[in-house]
Design a protein around this nucleic acid. Structure first.
Lengths: 163, 163
DNA sequence: ATTGAAACTTGATCGTT
DNA sequence: AACGATCAAGTTTCAAT
């Protein structure tokens, strides 16, 4: 796992494709080399499946943090605040929730230093009033496997009976 | 969006591949038809990129819920409780967190009925003591874009100078 | 909208450096 | 490990239904 691998992984995330051709063009690395690297990344378990999902733990991002961020309510700027949160290094998901003008933020981090930096960054945002974080001990499910129990709604149509 | 599309989407999620060949084999739908369907799903914005990420909202899963679940502490069974949570219809992510023996659960749901069913299901689990849910008004970031700000640690090596 | 078969693109392999 | 040339494989297209 070196700089070249990182560039390839970034290309995959940025381009939204796993095509060696496209990645090659984007990174300037020859496609046969891209292919060779991706093969290794799969063998190492960093890239998980054909859809090239990334294993955060294998990348050394072992700390997952769930943070509740309370911010001053400001109708116009709540998205902007959300975007500031989203831009912070390590942040993966940002939800703006009902009720208490809260954000729920989920982050993947490498070490304790990154954790404290993260919280500091949260509190640097002017509108942020309070943060409260919980470490994740174990991730039991972390796939947006939206279709696990997805069933099409059965729409029963009634034909009006005209007698 | 009909039953066939649903089967194809499930196949993608299950197999972890977008290959028309593999999906065809798994579903029994001819590969040219699989290709035709996937093309339409992309045009409709349900499948987002070449990595075939799914847009939950386009699927009608417009309600995202963040739930904190407090459960009785039981060293042996906390994973089992987590797995029960993960198995509930609509649940996408389950984190077991530090401190209060909490789970944080994130779900994608279609309607209010599904919400109340979900909460009922949570409380049917014996060990569950209390749940508290927050509706997500807006999802500002929801991609495990782990590499956004990922930089390789620069390990500076010092060669001991022998004089 | 579906599908079998043809056409073609490109991902994967191989041999050399 | 890197990479250009080559080939096999699988995707995409197309025409008929």
């Amino acid at each position: 796992m070196d700089d070249r691998d990182a560039r390839i992984l970034k290309a995959i995330a940025t381009l939204g494709t796993g095509s060696p051709e496209d990645i090659s063009e984007y990174t300037g690395i020859p496609k046969s080399t891209v292919h060779y690297r991706i093969k290794n990344l799969k063998e190492d378990g960093i890239l998980i499946n054909d859809l090239l999902d990334v294993d955060a733990q294998k990348l050394g991002l072992e700390i997952t943090l769930v943070t509740q961020v309370v911010a001053e309510y400001n109708e116009a700027y709540h998205v902007e605040v959300g975007e500031k949160l989203a831009a912070i290094e390590g942040v993966n998901q940002v939800y703006f929730t009902m009720g208490e003008n809260d954000f729920v933020v989920i982050s993947n981090l490498t070490d304790r230093d990154m954790v404290s930096r993260l919280v500091t960054d949260f509190e640097k945002i002017d509108e942020v009033v309070r943060t409260s974080s919980q470490f994740v001990i174990e991730t039991i499910k972390d796939e947006p496997n939206l279709l696990n129990d997805f069933e099409l709604e059965t729409v029963t149509e009634f034909t009006p009976k005209v007698e």
